[in-house]
Simulated scan of single mutants.
Amino acid sequence: MLLAIDMGNTQTAMGLFDGDELVQSWRMPTDRSYTADEIHVRLMGFFKMYGLSLDAVDAIAFAGVVPQLSREWHAVADRIAADAIVIGPQTAAVTKLRAARPQAVGADRVANAVAAETFYGAPAIVVDFGTATNIDVIDEDGYYIGGAIAPGIRISMDALAARAAKLASVPLEAPEHAIGRDTEECIKVGAVMGAAAMAEGLVTRMKRELGREDATVIATGGLAGIVADSTDAFDVVDGQLTIKGICEIYRRMQELG
């Protein structure tokens, strides 16, 4: 089985695949202080929770932005005798990038582009709501060509709470109205509907630049479901898109030999 790892700045998403089938998925905090021992113990706990065996994992594929944690994950892979690959230069032969600096494109964005083309067709636009809100554009030939990066919803809310003492932290929920009736609802409107409106505006402009109004728009990331409740800009909501892309890249690497 393959364990696909999407290591973001805030959370690490994991997916266990048996072939192309996603057997189970988990999330845990991305803590830069974690050692291989701590990661190993957490993994054993997740697997035990669902009656799975860590011994069944024969490969681990990473898409990550935290180099020191990548080293710890590699140590875990060695312990369980699993092959390990990292999305990036090692996998460039099976991915398609038309970027000014391909080596600088985030591994998660590469995985999103591969998954979008594979499962939903091209052209496509992926809006990934994570620590940052990433928008990835895939042209009609299936190549990642660029996109946009904006502060994520939680970053914006944390900054607001830190700078405005009277505005306490508010739970992230889709508001019922565009006009907030009290302070808490006003913050939800600004955060959630604001993120939805930004996505709508950028997606509209990107479709125009592509010359393809029919480009499939896919929302992913931990907050995609909440934002999707406030907009009809998305054709698909797929919270597992990135780990599915990691799995697809691993499959292509196996075929490449």
Rank of each mutant, 00 (worst) to 15 (best):
A132P: 04
A132W: 05
T133I: 14
T133K: 10
T133W: 08
T133F: 07
I135R: 01
I135K: 02
D136E: 13
D136A: 13
V137F: 07
V137A: 03
V137I: 14
V137Y: 03
I138W: 07
I138E: 00
I138L: 01
I138H: 02
D139H: 10
D139E: 04
E140L: 10
E140S: 14
E140M: 11
E140N: 12
E140I: 15
D141I: 03
D141M: 14
G142M: 05
G142N: 05
G142I: 04
G142L: 00
Y143R: 02
Y144P: 06
Y144D: 05
Y144N: 07
Y144H: 15
I145T: 04
I145R: 04
I145G: 09
I145Y: 02
G146N: 09
G146F: 08
G146V: 07
G147E: 06
G147N: 06
A148I: 08
A148C: 12
I149F: 01
I149E: 09
I149C: 04
I149N: 07
I149P: 03
A150V: 06
A150K: 09
P151N: 06
P151H: 05
P151V: 09
P151M: 10
G152M: 02
G152N: 04
G152L: 08
G152W: 00
I153E: 01
I153W: 00
I155Q: 10
S156T: 12
S156K: 08
S156Y: 11
S156R: 14
S156V: 07
S156W: 09
S156P: 00
S156C: 13
M157I: 09
M157Y: 05
M157L: 15
M157H: 11
D158T: 13
A159L: 11
L160E: 07
A161G: 08
A161V: 15
A161R: 13
A161E: 14
A162K: 08
A162Y: 03
A162R: 12
A162M: 09
R163E: 13
R163S: 13
A164T: 11
A164K: 04
A164W: 05
A165L: 03
A165V: 11
K166D: 09
K166V: 11
K166E: 15
K166L: 13
L167Y: 03
L167A: 07
L167H: 07
A168V: 14
A168C: 10
A168Y: 12
S169A: 14
S169E: 13
S169N: 13
V170Y: 03
V170P: 11
P171A: 04
P171F: 08
L172E: 03
L172K: 06
E173L: 14
E173P: 07
E173T: 14
E173G: 10
A174L: 08
P175N: 00
P175S: 00
P175H: 09
P175W: 00
P175R: 05
E176I: 11
E176C: 07
E176W: 08
H177A: 15
H177I: 05
H177G: 12
H177L: 11
H177D: 13
A178K: 09
A178V: 15
A178N: 12
A178I: 15
A178F: 12
I179M: 13
I179S: 10
I179H: 06
G180A: 04
G180M: 02
R181Q: 15
R181T: 12
R181N: 14
D182Q: 01
D182C: 02
